[in-house]
Amino acid sequence: MTTRRRTLIGMGALAANALSLGQAPQARATEGAESGPANDESRTATADFPLARAIDVHAHYITPTYRQALIDAGLDQPDGMSAIPAWSVDGALELMDSTGIAAALLSVSSPGFAVGDHHTARALVRQVNEEGAALVKANPTRFGLLASLPLPDADAAVEEVAHVFDVLKADGISLETNYEGTYLGDPSFRPVLAELNERQAVVHLHPTSPACWEATALGRARPMIEFLFDTTRTVTQLILDRVVENYPDIRFIVPHAGAALPVLADRIAAFALTESTPPVDVIGALKRLHYDVAGFALPRALPALLHLVDTERLLYGSDYPFTAEAAVKALGVRLAATDVLTAQQRQRVLSGNAARLFPRLADGGNS
């Protein structure tokens, strides 16, 4: 059985499971998307619109330029997945309308821009950022941009930070968990972190394959477990190397319900006691971060995360299109039905918390 067929079967089973929790979302046309669900303040989460008024902080875009660059670099099966998923503006808006998502922050997923030498990567980052900004300009109430940086070239990355914020008016930054095996807390990246701290940037972390994936992935697609461990690894470094402490104005978003951090937090904190005097306050640092609930947050990951942080730190994420449309809808129904969150907490997760991080989108794209 092919990987693609297994994926489709698995997503079908997920959708069937969600149907037992409530009526499946009904499709809506994209006509009138600009003034439709994004501005319908009366909508509440139901089986028809399980993600009513949500601001999706973990959504991806794949422009023709970027797709071709991946293909040319031999990355047409990114991170061991079967294919680069299809993506279009119309398709994204149709999914948003059919679930009630008001706005989505667009970013580039793994494998990022590891497509050649640093000069090639730098040029591609600039072009894809420009294309992302054009998508936002054409759909200002529906899309935001979390721009990419050409790391591990720190000097180029500092220049790109200035460009994306001062010229493109990006809403934030998306960083891979490692760049060519160098993790985000590495001293070579400190000039970039200092610039992001100065700008009080929102920085969404996104996992990618670790440098050692050939030995650790067990011959399977890296998003299954390697992504979660790589997120855990880079956040652990950011905390233990005091990046979170020394750059307090960066507002980090950790994906996938905190990955393995809720389970490992106490273990990391215990080891931190042996590393420095005074020791790093690991639990305190984790509580200051933000977390999206993209992927399989229920039934187990979200309750574990809630033992670490309160709901004011949680944000909705779809991971579309790397999470297929059927799965996004099924997971949305599951989130709408869970008793882990009260109705007030659920709306906070869907939109209220993100509105504080991304006020432009909370204000209908006008600020």
Results as ranks from 00 to 15, higher is better:
Glu275Leu: 15
Cys212Gly: 10
Gly364Ser: 03
Ala73Lys: 03
Ala269Thr: 05
Ile84Glu: 05
Thr232Ala: 14
Asn197Asp: 15
Val167Thr: 14
Ser318Asp: 13
Thr7Gln: 13
Glu94Asn: 10
Leu70Ala: 03
Gly36Met: 06
Val328Gly: 11
His256Gly: 04
Gly112Asp: 00
Ala304Gln: 15
His163Ala: 09
Ala134Ser: 06
Met1Ile: 12
Arg242Thr: 11
Ser318Thr: 10
Phe227Thr: 01
Gly284Gln: 12
Phe271Asp: 11
Phe113Lys: 00
Phe252Met: 02
Leu218Trp: 12
Pro50Asp: 08
Asp48Gln: 08
His204Asn: 12
Ile173Leu: 09
Ala13Leu: 14
Glu275Ala: 12
Asn17Trp: 12
Tyr320Ser: 09
Leu264Phe: 15
Val340Arg: 09
Phe252Trp: 10
Asn178His: 12
Lys287His: 11
Gly10Arg: 13
Ala147Asp: 02
Gly352Arg: 05
Gln345His: 04
Arg334Asn: 14
Asp310Trp: 03
Ala92Pro: 02
Arg288Leu: 09
Pro111Arg: 08
Ser148Cys: 13
Ala326Asp: 09
Arg126Ser: 11
His118Asn: 13
Gly116Ile: 09
Ala83Trp: 13
Leu193Trp: 06
Ala170Pro: 06
Leu19Glu: 11
Pro210Leu: 03
His206Arg: 01
Val167Asn: 12
Trp87Tyr: 13
Asn246Ile: 02
Ala330Tyr: 07
Met11Thr: 10
Ala27Ser: 14
Ala326Ile: 11
Tyr320Trp: 15
Gly185Tyr: 04
Thr232Pro: 04
Ala45Gly: 02
Thr311Trp: 10
Ser42Pro: 07
Asp117Lys: 07
Gln26Ile: 08
Ala92Arg: 08
Leu261Cys: 03
Leu264Met: 15
Val203Glu: 00
Gly36His: 02
Asp241Gly: 12
Ala54Ser: 12
Ala260Ser: 14
Ser42Leu: 08
Thr2Gly: 07
Pro255Gly: 03
Pro279Gly: 01
Val244Ile: 15
Arg5Leu: 14
Leu51Arg: 03
Ala354Lys: 01
Ala211Trp: 10
Pro255Gln: 05
Tyr291Arg: 01
Arg267Trp: 05
Thr277Ala: 15
Ser35Pro: 01
Ala354His: 05
Pro64Asn: 07
Asp72Arg: 10
Leu168Ala: 02
Val115Lys: 08
Arg334Ser: 14
Ala138Ile: 05
Leu361Asn: 00
Val243Tyr: 08
Ala18Glu: 02
Pro85His: 08
Leu273Met: 13
Ala18Leu: 01
Asp310Val: 06
Arg313Leu: 06
Thr177Asp: 04
Ala133Ile: 00
Thr63Pro: 00
Ala24Asp: 04
Gly80Phe: 00
Leu151Val: 00
Val254Asn: 01
Ala354Trp: 00
Tyr320Glu: 00
Ala354Arg: 03
Leu168Pro: 04
Gly22Leu: 04
